[in-house]
Structures are given as C-alpha cells and as structure tokens.
C-alpha cells in the first residue's frame, strides 16, 4: 500500500522555511524590497516599487541598474532554489535545521546580459527564471520580468553561474 501523504501544513511549512532561509538576511534584497512567491516549486520574484528605485525622475522610470539587479537576484535565487528543492524533498537536507549558516553556498555570477525592452514603469514588477542548464560546475539561467502584462516583458536576461563545490565528505 502507498504510504499516506504528509499533511499539507507539514509540506508547506518545510518548503516555506527553506525559501525563507534562502532569501532572508540578504541586505541588498531587502533594500530593493524584493520578495518571492512560491507555488509548489515555482517561484515568482516581486519587486515592490518605491521612490529610491527611480532612475529618471522626468519620465519617471525604474533605474536600469535596478532592473538588472532584480533580474540577477531572480535568476540566482531561482537557480539556488531549484537545487535546494531537490535536497529538501529527498530529505538530503533537513529543512527544519536550515539557517544562514547551514545553507548550501550560493552560486556565483560569471556574467549577466540584460536586454531592456521597454521602460520600467513606477509600479511593481515581477520576474520568473528558467534554468536552461544546471551542470556540476556551470549553469545557464534565463529570466524575464514584466509589470502589467505577462506577455509583454519589459526586460529579459541570460546569465552564467558558477555552481558551489560540494562540501567535502
């Protein structure tokens, strides 16, 4: 007989705890005011608009650097989350014991290329990353950001990342 599925609260709590451990404590993510919404293993990054994100006050428009930072954060967390997800779901890592200290090391950005498609408007933005390849050493991630209409992204980017070395032993 198939074992009974875990209660929904237990599953949710484990996954939310792991995600929280991954994104909290990063001062720059807090400064930009980015948070992540999770549906199963799918993540959407949300950039809450505030005045400090403005680059051109005449338009006004979100600073291109903010857009780049938002995309890079979404790609990096998306990649780290995909790897962490497997480890917590298989039980290789105990989500209960996860903290900033016990978290697997983050991938490092090698390069990041941003296409600016439209002006970033002074309102919230959303981004979703797709890991196109995640090897033992290198990963390639694509990410798209939109504001009002998901079919009309205002920026997209592709980045290459160096995966953390597995801890010895």
């Amino acid at each position: 007989m198939r074992p009974r599925p875990e209660p929904v609260q237990v599953v949710k709590q484990r996954r939310d705890r792991a995600l929280k451990a991954l994104v909290e404590n990063i001062p720059y993510v807090r400064f930009l005011n980015i948070h992540f919404e999770r549906h199963g293993n799918e993540l959407t990054a949300v950039l809450n608009f505030h005045d400090e994100l403005i680059g051109n006050p005449a338009l006004p428009a979100i600073h291109g650097g903010v857009t780049a930072a938002f995309l890079e954060t979404s790609a990096l967390i998306g990649l780290a989350w995909q790897n962490l997800w497997e480890k917590i779901e298989t039980g290789a890592i105990d989500a209960e014991a996860l903290s900033a200290e016990t978290l697997p090391r983050m991938p490092k950005t090698i390069d990041f290329t941003v296409d600016y498609l439209r002006t970033g408007l002074p309102r919230d933005a959303y981004a979703r990353a797709r890991v196109n390849r995640s090897g033992r050493r290198y990963a390639s991630v694509h990410v798209e950001a939109w504001q009002d209409d998901v079919t009309r992204p205002f920026a997209q980017a592709t980045g290459h990342f160096l995966m953390p070395m597995p801890s010895p032993g």
């Binding site: 990063i26 001062p27 720059y28 650097g65 780049a68 930072a69 890079e72 983050m106 990041f112 941003v114």
Partner: peptide, 16 residues
C-alpha cells in the same frame, strides 16, 4: 551587501 557571510557587495549594485 549580497553575501552577509562575507560582506561582499551584491553584483546588482555594481550593475547599477
């Protein structure tokens, strides 16, 4: 800071 363990600045700030 992008990495609280080391105090290294986030790549995004360098991009800006």
């Amino acid at each position: 800071v992008g990495d609280p363990a080391t105090g290294v600045i986030h790549g995004g700030a360098v991009s800006s």
